[in-house]
Design a binder for these strands. Sequence first.
DNA 1: TTGAAAGCGATACCAC
DNA 2: GTGGTATCGCTTTCAA
Lengths: 359, 359
Amino acid sequence: MNRFTIICITACRVNPDSLRGIVKHRTTIRELAEYTGLSPAAVSYALRGKQVSAATERRVREAAEKLGYEADPIARALAGGATAVVGLLVGSLADFWTQELVRAVQRELYGAELSALVADADGEPARELELAQRLVDQRVDGLVVVPIGPASGGWASIARQLPVVTIGDELPGVAPAGEVVFDNELGVEQALQHLSGLGHRRITVLSWAVETSPERDAERAAALSAAALGLDCRVVPCAYSLNGSQPLAAELLDDPGRPTAVLCLSDSIAYGVYAACAELGLSIPGDVAVAGFGDHPISRLLAPPLTSTVWDVEQAAECATSFLSQAIAADGPQATLREVVAPVLAVRASTGPPTPRRG
Amino acid sequence: MNRFTIICITACRVNPDSLRGIVKHRTTIRELAEYTGLSPAAVSYALRGKQVSAATERRVREAAEKLGYEADPIARALAGGATAVVGLLVGSLADFWTQELVRAVQRELYGAELSALVADADGEPARELELAQRLVDQRVDGLVVVPIGPASGGWASIARQLPVVTIGDELPGVAPAGEVVFDNELGVEQALQHLSGLGHRRITVLSWAVETSPERDAERAAALSAAALGLDCRVVPCAYSLNGSQPLAAELLDDPGRPTAVLCLSDSIAYGVYAACAELGLSIPGDVAVAGFGDHPISRLLAPPLTSTVWDVEQAAECATSFLSQAIAADGPQATLREVVAPVLAVRASTGPPTPRRG
DNA sequence: TTGAAAGCGATACCAC
DNA sequence: GTGGTATCGCTTTCAA
């Protein structure tokens, strides 16, 4: 900030008015106090509408307007107030559905006059907690998390310090301020039923979190449903992105014993399967049926359009932001706000009956 | 923060050691000073390796490690230090290419130990400066901007206060710390040449910023190139997203006098055109040739694969972050770092010769 | 309801 | 090189 200082010194030698537009001297609360003839404390209260007479409040607001006063978020934060910044911690920004979620959450936060400090675990569950802590250190007012890692003790500690709202999976053992839960179990079951109903028996599930959280709903559900439906179902861990899944998919499908259907626990992964199929000259759904998870806006534009389980980002974002706002406003631990979202399977042309194969 | 206080009071009655893991009392610089027998000032300097003897520095670092000291970013910011937070201001998070850019920038920043405060102008140029100012108020160390609005005086003022790096278009009249410039002019020219070479004469350019910044390179280039190539070329403003462009595209194409080719200044817009074509039963490129801008990873997966002008997000992100890091480290105005990225046209199946029409 | 003053946790200036 | 200390701008007891 040396640069800043130098400019100030220069400016002090000239007419103060010429400062305007050069370096904008932020109006401080003290100046507002002086201007209104009140004390800084009174002004502070007035601005927040706390324990003030209506008359004073109006007077202060007018003065603030006139002088272009805006509270300094940093000073406010240091003094124990709110930062108006929310941490948004996602499992993988490389995933398109997640990107859409970020947009949606961002949008909701803007409406609530909040900013988003975005952190990306980049598919590495181990990085998740570290990033969360970093966000806490930045004094965010709250945390929106799309968990990919297992619930660890660290989360409980963090949830005790500030409001945490999860989207998607839960953080078992943690009592967050809110959770928007996707019923992944049911989602997987529905998808497998759909494939099973089409006649598929050999199915591979491509999942992005299998090694690190063996109890994650989706995988357990896959195993259970598969057993119930009498399917030969294998769950394979997979990178959480188009580019990451393509090579894996290519390897998986370049094999006469390949599955007749692939259920991808993210549309991004499904896109990788599309790419692999193009590479291998396999047709969808003729050679392989493909289903996704999340239903990204682009999925319906692919050829063939991708069958996918809808997880509405707008709804999730709105709900999560609302939960978080409430929790921040409550300023203390409350009962966990909870919303369970039901999966809706959007059946499109990427899933059809399996073609009989020789061998 | 009442919750915090209450817990503290409770805890004070019990053994302080039991505090660990319940509420972590941040170690302050003063405690570190006390512990090491130094003054807060000395510790502050030592931690930043400024004007300290090696011995002291080591001693302080060890103590910091031991007590788990981490500087409070808020306090640091208020005192004029760095926040390690960078503002990332994008024109529209609804645009998929932009989403990818956010991912890439985010990733680069993580490598540089920086966090990203993401702001989305949501396609509204007017919102851009307001958001930028908000980021400045949050004391970000620097700003990465993907400009959509016209360069206004406000930008010059901001650029004087902190390092600003632009990606994509420039901010004329502003001397930013760095700029990663896409040669949109050439990009548009190449695309139009390609379409012209295929035999198209009636072309519509769908652009996302036409009303607000009439001097934007891309549009001017479109007009110039079109004139040079003898094209009947119309530039139409369009929402910066799939969902936004679809209705417009539908309207545009549901007309016998429709263009034979559409050049979209963003792949997201092109996706909307695809959707509109599907809706109207038009074939690509048979009925309409479509070209995009940006080359999103999904574009090659569409049917037909989308012809697009490649703007590499990884490169842009790396370059921008590098510029910004340098500028932040320099801590003062330097010459503008500049990188001009050349467009590469990826020709795919979405563009072909026009089909002769009756009428 | 309002005012005075003590922080919040760093940084940076000025002596020594 | 190190130590005191004012400062950043706001919040929040505590008194009046």
